[in-house]
Simulated assay, not measured.
Amino acid sequence: MAHKIAIVGVGKIARDQHIPTLAANDDFELVATASRNAGVDGVDRFEDLGALLKARPDVTCVSLCTPPHARYDDARLALESGKHLMIEKPPGATLSEVHDLEALAIDRGLVFYSTWHSRHAASVSAAKAWLAERTIRSLEVRWKEDVRFWHPGQEWIWEAGGLGVFDPGINALSVLTEIYPRGLFLRQAELQFPENRDTPIAADLTFRDPGGAQVSAQFDWLKDGPPEWDMHIETDGGYALLSEGGARLTIDGVEVDARRGPELQGEYPALYARFAELLARGEREVDLSPMRHVADAFTLGRRKVVAPFHW
């Protein structure tokens, strides 16, 4: 029997990814939404999660697609109401609030899944397997895009807690922490803040690898033209380029065939397939390693004020 699921926050990511994915997934039935400004045809719509849960007690799962700094109250309400929970990336505004939610889920015996969709890009698992057998000498992340194209008019990303350029940058960090064969920690950072905004528009990060590799990341939200979502990796066994957000892997100039495995179905279908597995097993999956690097960047980062940003 399909799990009756509700979506909270019918914004761009829900319309582009979650709703069509659920429509094609037999493990779930989307029965309700909670959102101030939008709904889904043929699905019960409510202004907030409290009203939804009162009217639809048959809902067993909640998928939160709201911005991270406005998510905690709904996440806690869902868990307190006995609902299994899946959360968009990043899982919260702070590490502490996510730890609190995880503890509540454990106490109530509920599934709690903090998702990282970029880890399910088509070539990420292949890159991870290739690196596991080699010594990394250097890895450079270049994650650059045009904020006006990818986040048009989304003011929340510029508010404190909205993460700014780390909203896409955390996707890169989720891939990095998935494929890297050992732990890394941040050594230094420079964050560029528009003088009229509360979150950064660019960031340069330098990591320390106890194994001695040189690891860095460059995030930029003012790139003209096509995005650059790439990782350049030098090893003792060749050079790899993981590009297009993890979709393509090229090793020494030869593209690796990634047409196999569960990633073929797409990132969000893979997320919901994983959620269904966790529900079947009654397990939780909460990995905060990408978010820890972001928190460290705000702790260590040297702040540089740059020109104001206007849409």
Rank of each mutant, 00 (worst) to 15 (best):
F46R: 01
L264Y: 11
G82D: 06
I87L: 07
I7L: 15
D220R: 14
D16T: 07
L300K: 11
D44M: 05
A6M: 05
H18W: 15
L279C: 08
A276Q: 11
P226T: 14
I13N: 13
E145W: 01
G169D: 12
R208F: 13
T250I: 05
K128Q: 13
V31S: 08
Q214C: 09
P262K: 05
A126N: 09
A276F: 12
G42Y: 01
A55H: 01
A122W: 14
E29Y: 08
R197L: 13
E190S: 12
H120I: 02
G162R: 00
T115N: 12
A105D: 06
L176I: 04
E277L: 12
P227V: 07
V165L: 03
L163N: 02
A14Q: 08
R15E: 15
F112N: 03
I201N: 13
A122H: 14
Q154N: 01
P290G: 11
F298Q: 04
R292G: 08
A202Y: 04
V10Y: 05
L30T: 11
L173D: 10
N25G: 01
A75S: 13
G225H: 01
A132Q: 04
E283Q: 11
L176P: 09
L49K: 01
G9C: 05
L264G: 12
D287P: 03
G161L: 01
G253S: 11
A203Y: 01
T33Q: 01
V43M: 02
E47L: 06
P181F: 10
G153I: 03
P90T: 14
L249H: 08
S81Y: 00
A280F: 09
A2V: 08
S125E: 12
A270W: 07
L279F: 15
G212D: 09
A38H: 06
A121T: 13
F207L: 04
D27R: 15
L241G: 10
A127T: 14
A258L: 02
R281F: 13
D58C: 04
P200S: 07
E277V: 13
L242D: 04
V59S: 09
H3E: 15
T135N: 14
Q214T: 08
E190P: 13
W143D: 02
D16V: 08
E88N: 00
T235S: 15
V254T: 06
S243N: 07
A273F: 09
R197K: 02
